[in-house]
């Protein structure tokens, strides 16, 4: 493949065929919401990853005199009940929340889509996979988490260190307990798609199942997957806060957006900035991912792209 392409590019007067990804990019660029969403998302990433180099206060440093202070020059977003700087905590929290949100969402999406497509496409495994989905839907989440934490926390901590270990554990836990809805939705769509004429046409020319799934089925179930993805990020960020609240997540002095929002809730009347900032951060991040998803979906749909 590489040989062939390098030799063709040497031919004079031949313009390399545009890859379809360029078309996708062109279409994506015209989607105003998507561009704004992407820009905002990148801004959030810069804020949480580069921000700490500019705003150098430690998120865990306690300055007890600044306790419960409102916004000021020293603490633009105020300080919490122990006098920790909220701006630094939002930045530190964002790093964890975005990382957890994205990876857990991806994990649940991959598992969900995989199970859904297999179940919908191959009737033989449908029953088994869907009963497995029923099982996971029925499992009581909290005891399951307690068991997982009990069994795997110490080995993971020993192998990857305290922070990495917990991160892997949390992403895994959220991922494997939230893929079921995606799987059911994808399966439903695949069941309907499978009976459509173009699938019949593709099959009649002898398309093998893996190409069938990748080229014909998957692109057509993209929109529910995109919705699941955006909702999944929000769910993962909130679930993470529930986990650390129960003592199953990150150590208590480790800020995350969901946890900041939870801790701030009681302070709603006295220090509203304590809930406004983390609440806004979660909402706007999810919103921006939603618009990126919208744009991607449109860009990947050849029917729209052609217009």
């Amino acid at each position: 493949m590489t040989d062939a392409s390098s030799s063709t590019s040497e031919q004079v007067g031949y313009t390399k065929p545009r890859s379809q990804w360029w078309d996708v990019w062109d279409q994506f660029k015209t989607h105003k919401g998507a561009v704004m969403g992407a820009a905002f998302f990148i801004a959030v990433l810069i804020f949480v990853y580069v921000g700490p180099y500019i705003w150098t206060l430690d998120a865990q440093y306690i300055d007890i005199r600044a306790r419960n202070q409102g916004p000021s020059l020293a603490h633009p977003m105020g300080a919490d009940q122990l006098g920790r700087d909220m701006l630094a905590r939002i930045m530190a929290g964002g790093r964890t929340s975005i990382a957890v949100g994205l990876t857990a969402m991806l994990l649940s999406l991959v598992v969900g889509t995989f199970v859904g497509v297999l179940a919908g496409y191959f009737r033989r495994v449908d029953g088994l996979l869907m009963r497995l989905t029923d099982l996971f839907l029925a499992l009581p989440l909290l005891p399951l988490l307690l068991v997982i934490i009990m069994l795997f926390r110490d080995p993971l901590r020993a192998t990857f260190g305290p922070e990495q270990g917990i991160f892997i554990l949390i992403v895994f836990v959220i991922g494997i307990t939230s893929w079921m809805q995606t799987a059911r939705i994808v399966r439903g769509d695949v069941l309907a798609l499978k009976e459509r004429e173009f699938v019949l046409a593709a099959r009649s020319i002898g398309t093998p199942p893996h190409r069938m799934i990748l080229r014909h089925v998957l692109p057509n179930v993209l929109s529910p997957i995109m919705v699941s993805a955006t909702l999944g990020i929000a769910t993962a960020i909130i679930t993470e806060s529930a986990l650390s609240f129960l003592g199953l997540g990150f150590p208590s002095d480790f800020p995350t957006w969901g946890r900041l929002l939870f801790d701030g809730t009681d302070w709603l009347q006295r220090n509203p900035e304590r809930v406004i900032w983390p609440g806004l951060a979660i909402s706007l991040t999810v919103l921006s991912v939603n618009y990126i998803g919208d744009g991607l979906r449109d860009a990947l749909d050849p029917r729209i792209r052609g217009r």
Partner: peptide, 30 residues
């Protein structure tokens, strides 16, 4: 699609989904 209604709807639903009930519940109580 992309009308003002759609944009407003998107905004409200996404914010609504991102705000967990432990917060929105206390907010409406207050």
């Amino acid at each position: 699609q992309y009308s003002i209604f759609d944009q407003a709807g998107t905004f409200v639903t996404m914010v609504g989904f991102s705000v967990p009930p432990f917060f929105s519940g206390v907010l409406v109580i207050v």
